[in-house]
Design a protein around this nucleic acid. Sequence first.
DNA 1: CGTGCCTCGACGG
DNA 2: TCGAGGCACG
Length: 724
Amino acid sequence: MGITGLIPFLKAASRPVNVREYSGCTVAVDAYCWLHKGAIACAEKLVRGDETDVYVNYCVKYIDMLLSHNVKPILVFDGRHLPAKAETEKFRRERRNNNKRKAADLLRQDRPDEARNVMKACIDITPEMAYSLIKRCREMCVDCIVAPYEADAQLAYLNLAGFAHIVITEDSDLLLFGCERVLFKLDLVGNGLLIEQSKLHLAMKVHPDKFSMDKFRHMCILSGCDYLNSLPGIGLSKACKFIKRTAETNISRALTKMGAHLNMANLVVSPEYREKFLVADSMFKHQPVFDPTTRKVIPMTPLSEGEQGPGLEQLPADISYQLALGNLDPFTLEKFDDWDPDCNKMTSLRTNGWNKVGRTADSIWSRTFTKPSPILPLDRRKPEKPTVTVRQTSDCDEYKFPKKKRPEEELQDLRERFGIKSPPSKKSRSDETCDSGISSQVIECSDPEDDPLDITNAEEDFLEELCDEKLSTLDDLIPSSAAEETKPSIRNKFSCQKKTERSGSTSGLEGLRNLRTIQIDEDNVVCSRFFSSSQDSNCENRPITPSTMDLNNCSSAEQELNNELELIVNGGDRRPADGAASPSKSIFASPKRQNTSHEVSDPAVSPLAEISQLDKNLKLGKDERPSLLARLDKVSQILSDKVKTPASSFKWDKKTPNLAQKTFSSYLSPPSGGSAVKNQPPVKPLVSKSAKPSGLFKSKKSPAPVKTNLLEKYGFKSKPKMSL
DNA sequence: CGTGCCTCGACGG
DNA sequence: TCGAGGCACG
Ligand SMILES: [Mn+2]
């Protein structure tokens, strides 16, 4: 399914997100993905034909997770098979049946483990299974829609027509269908990988002005898609190269010159291929979809005059409508149900914080439905500065741009944005090479132990090439105001990319966020503003505070580190912030600052303030700052290693529930049996005996100083790049 | 280097 | 089943 290798190819256009950042949004969900994963959990039962609702419950977990983040899901189901895929489907069915037989054989041979694996390979999501999820969704007042054909096109339509802000799927095809935002690899804590259409040019390395969705789609079809296999030897890279090199706008004519453009003499593009290419292209543009407003089947994108859509069977209008509602088996058209949205009051769709979603809480099937605001409710960070124009390169083919800015530049940008004067320090050391970003082909870093480098010519060239990518990078660096208001999360696994990749400098700031949530020792609890979300007057998003962590286990390292950084308060003079609406402070904020901070735009809240505060705490002279981000990166890395924030490495300890578990317990099954509870009473903050929930930092006594040189202990010396 | 073929894990306890 | 990650081939 989908385009092989597209998601890795689009790495530069993707970023890790948490659905928390999309509170108030509507998402269209490819229900098949969840059903399929859920079906794996009960593969045996399904293969044997036993009744089970395990897969439904699995999907409900995802739905609950979205709702808990105030995100409204619309579940989209596959409809009829496309004739073009008939052979593929037949082939799959045969293979499934083969696997069934194989599984039965293995069972007879008393090899249940192998049988289990084979059974996973013959899972089929039947219309009945889809219907049982639809039924459950109706109980939950969650919208569903069955596509006339592929869910892909329907999902894209919901996005393009403004019914949904984001599409959730595992199928990279969705990008070809023209979706603006697609969220892949969503897990049960809300982490996923977001790919935005507006960033696709980054992956293709073309100038934004030279990018078009047509080019992107053509590239993908050439590399091989469900509707058309690729020509031998053509993958995404070659296809991308070709699309960038051809100036011909008529794709059919352009295809005849593909061999020449790619220097592949033996590459023949037959007329048949070109024909099929155009049909595939049409399928990605004009596949039939159902419009819930008019209750009619329409082409996903309007046909231009004279243009032929993909010739597909059109069902009568009432049948199409019933099919879309989920009342019919898409294949047999046999009646499942008689559900009628006009008779069922769907006025208040179930979402947590119903008021926050406002009118988007309507059902798409309601006669009074109005589409949500096209602007992402929490994505209001608009670049206010005009973007820097890119220096045109002579080579129009390749668009080169800096992948990453120097930490200094990032800091400078941060300063500008937060209106903070830059320190007089002149230049930093060369150790930023550890900070992913600097493309090594530009800056040759001879020896990490070298003294500060001057700006080389190459570097200046590099700087000149700064372009409008700057702002998107900044957006990644600076948590949006919305994200600032949110709770801490288990770290998104997609942000844990390799050192050499883009995560480098952002992780420094991510690390800051992690730091705030750390319990330092049994007497020191950090309650960052993430826990005292004063905006959350709604009972669903309760301030959650760490209660009883395993202090001896998880906090000794960061305690030591904090001692080293002199971050531990002496004597408990940190008071909880008074006043309900007072924004909480990070552990990096000095006590003085905390006590006097009543400004609305408290600089202490900004990441930069925290960085500079950290510098003060580190007592680093301005000239000895090698790379703030690099160092922060290292520090946060150590901390997160010790605290084990990544979801994947979490071991839920029943006896010592930790922070993340608390945070997400509202939709995860509680560790000690019992059912997951919604609207559960607020978790009582640990510090609340003496402090208000918005308390920030509670300290009873100062821990004994630790002599160990942590920097050495954790190998800072051994890594010259990171030398502090 | 890019493509194409391989194996492995998903879920859940 | 699907994608992801590893490895061999031209
Ligand atoms: Mn698809």
